[in-house]
Amino acid sequence: MTTATLVTSLFVFVLAAFVGFEVINKVPPTLHTPLMSGANAISGIAVLGAILVSGTGNLTLSAILGLIAVILATINVVGGFLVTDRMLQMFKKKEA
């Protein structure tokens, strides 16, 4: 990684953080838990990085570490989205 790419990445990071603050700022307390677990599922995006480092083709140590990372991050993604959905299913207005 060169310094130039680092700076570009920093731009992306900081701007995305501002977007995050703006988008999430006004969430009613009722939704705090689903927001947290939904965001948590999104942080499982690390699975992409894990795929990239584990898919090099050779069974090297780094590929094995990457594979473990794939498993951990996939648990995070799948579990996170499903449990959030399960929770949100329960948030209903009273019928009738």
Binding site: V12, A17, I42
Partner: peptide, 10 residues
Amino acid sequence: IIAGALVGAS
């Protein structure tokens, strides 16, 4: 980076 920053902010 983007997804991480969003979650970090929330």
